[in-house]
Design a protein around this nucleic acid. Structure first.
Lengths: 159, 159
DNA sequence: TTTACTGCAAACATTTTGCAGATGT
DNA sequence: ACATCTGCAAAATGTTTGCAGTAAA
């Protein structure tokens, strides 16, 4: 009913560079750099984090490019924009096509969930309210198995 | 399975002033003003909109107070913070207790939906992923019946 | 060669904070 | 009386834009 993709997000997805290429965008140096940075991330990340890291590594990637690229990737579905409970905007890598995520409030890890069960809920809401539902967003927050087990690891303050 | 509360949001909820009072907050003039502004709203509204309207009506309510009050109300559950698809933060009045909303992308109207069906989905995700899910958020966007019917009415640009 | 793309810096928008003074209880 | 609450103005954040130059195709 609800199937899940386990594993740390970015692991087995089509390389971001490929997604860009296939969409007809130029494979520029800044974009390659960003793709690498993003691929290297576990869990969620913010635009600002990328800006900071790019600057730290002297990759010569400007703020504007980060925002522009993230926009593109979100558009293409290679990345999804999350609204953390804290109000921050974060992104996670994901299979282009869909979806929704469970996000760990402690380490930031995220896993995709498919919306098989959700679809029914959405359909039902539409029926009951008379709305035509065009878009829906589901975000789950909690603790991932590792953090539940008390594993140390990086704490990414997700409120 | 999924029950719905129809009607334009703010209609039949405990007065905001009461919520504040019961929570032990002082019933100050600025808070009363804001409560009135919010009660007068249909559909969603942003902090900035309130600031602007308060200023237009010369209510002498400052920016900071608007943000502080909205925070309080969100905390108390009298209001819920929405993340519109555009990335904007908006608020809707709601029954303190729970909730998710369907939001009309055209007029901003919103209706509550209960999560009877959703609960099952959440539980299933938890089971499959091993996460302990502490918090979840569901937001649906589309067109309300009135807007579907081509009714004119105020268009609140929700992306 | 062409035109998409870039960094930069400035513009904008949103939210938070410090603080002296006002105000509810 | 006195702690809570306020507006203000400044600061911290977050995001977008205009533009002249750069580089991918």
């Amino acid at each position: 009913m609800v199937s899940t993709v386990l594993g740390s997000g970015a692991m087995d997805n089509p390389p971001i560079v490929t997604v860009l290429d296939r969409a007809g965008y130029r494979l520029t140096e800044p974009r390659r750099s960003l793709a690498a940075l993003i691929a290297g991330r576990e869990g969620h990340f913010t635009a600002t984090e990328l800006v900071t890291e790019a600057r730290a590594r002297r990759l010569g990637v400007g703020r504007a490019t980060v925002f522009r690229t993230l926009d593109m990737l979100a558009e293409l579905g290679a990345v999804e924009r999350l609204d953390l409970p804290s109000g921050e905007h974060a992104y996670v890598v994901c299979e282009p096509a869909h979806h929704h995520h469970v996000v760990c409030s402690r380490c930031g890890r995220s896993d995709e969930i498919d919306d098989t069960g959700l679809r029914k809920v959405v359909r039902e809401v539409a029926r009951r309210t008379g709305y035509r539902v065009d878009e829906h967003r589901l975000e789950l927050f909690g603790l991932c198995p590792a953090c539940l087990a008390g594993q140390p690891g990086p704490t990414r303050g997700v409120a």
